[in-house]
Design a protein around this nucleic acid. Sequence first.
DNA 1: CGAGGTCTTGAAGACGATCAACAAACGTGG
DNA 2: CCACGTTTGTTGATCGTCTTCAAGACCTCG
Lengths: 239, 239
Amino acid sequence: MIDAFLKKLRARDYLTEVEAQALQNAAGRVEGFNAGSWLVREDSRPSHSLLVCQGLCARTTILADGGRQISAIHIEGDFVDLPSLILKRMDHGILALTDCKAISFPHDKLREITAEFPHLTRLLWLSTLIDLATHREWIVALGRRDAESRAARLFCELKTRMDIVGLTRGNSFELPISQQTLSDCLGVSAVHANRVLQTLRARGLLQWSDGTVTLPDWQGLVKLADFDPTYLQLEIEPR
Amino acid sequence: MIDAFLKKLRARDYLTEVEAQALQNAAGRVEGFNAGSWLVREDSRPSHSLLVCQGLCARTTILADGGRQISAIHIEGDFVDLPSLILKRMDHGILALTDCKAISFPHDKLREITAEFPHLTRLLWLSTLIDLATHREWIVALGRRDAESRAARLFCELKTRMDIVGLTRGNSFELPISQQTLSDCLGVSAVHANRVLQTLRARGLLQWSDGTVTLPDWQGLVKLADFDPTYLQLEIEPR
DNA sequence: CGAGGTCTTGAAGACGATCAACAAACGTGG
DNA sequence: CCACGTTTGTTGATCGTCTTCAAGACCTCG
């Protein structure tokens, strides 16, 4: 069940069998979540961290006026609330966008890993640093790009990340989320998100129906998005 | 010279003398940077990490069209490119907003810390996780709040963070940056940033002249900004 | 003294929000 | 099986925030 996470790590550094086994040993039981439910609630103090092994979920902040902003979409293989090992109190929630399954890692076990496996610890740290770099990309997009470019960027990011864990087939992948949810990622209204999608379709950059995205013109999309995957750190390096 | 960083850690957890000494022993020499120069350049591969001990700097992304987005402002005590220990290649630059000084920590020494001091390692990890949470706050602000609220939030954040390391006097602190720079944080034009500042001044929420910010009505500012410092993790906890 | 950066103000226009309405798909219960 | 409410996708019209362009005042600094 932790295969996807191992794939993510192995796309960035060599991982020994002993380390992989140590991770496997720290894993607890698998929990299921229905679409629309919370994997982790804001203000909670988790005693374990969840690694997504099926489905999509979103790092979600609810505002006082009822508005909603999503700051990350997480897929299979994402160690979604690893930070709670150290941060203790959640300042945001994690919402299941589809039915999800996640493996629970008791914090005790993870803390043992940090005591016994320095290199593996650095790789866990790495996975949170990639989240940091990804957040930074979203900041740049929200601050300085228009909605069309932001949407294009999001599709580029998801395609690239899904490639790593084997969730794409050619230039297609599953994305069974609503336009409302997309708009909460992009920081626009649902109405405007709809119009942006129409222009992307009209330009031949996007097909999206029945929860399946197809990107027929990757180069064109990359250009519109000004997408540079450097931030995803897809190089095998000693970390 | 690393006192400010120790203050930051000690605002979140107990730190032993041995750990503090280990950090001190890992410190290399102090480097100076002129305002407008780069502490760390995009695409570089640093062999050491910088801890700011004087001045202000900004995590900066330059866009193809010449636009600029700042994703974080860093102050004294911020271990500003600790991530390069693990990420290897910089996907953005770090710009000196004022004359700066920073202590250089060789990556070799830091890697030794991760091998010998698990708890201290978790605290270093913590400092990057606080950056992560801060980035998330910026995403929410950029996605769902208007420019006035974003500006108010930034002043709240800076005041709170400067309090921790002792850079405030009452409700005042030094912020010798231009409105252009501020606008690059807020994701608006410099013209609009100027107008936003005027309304904040007119509402009695802000004084800012000669590089000194005064916040005469903290409660009012917090309300306008919808500011909740939870994300800064200002609780002493075993991490 | 001139040059360049910063702050400020005005006017025009673009991007996106809001409000409203409708059609299609879906699950639920009768 | 149909009636129903709900969610989702779509379109049009109006409005507001913010951008862009332009210009002038002020400041510092060589």
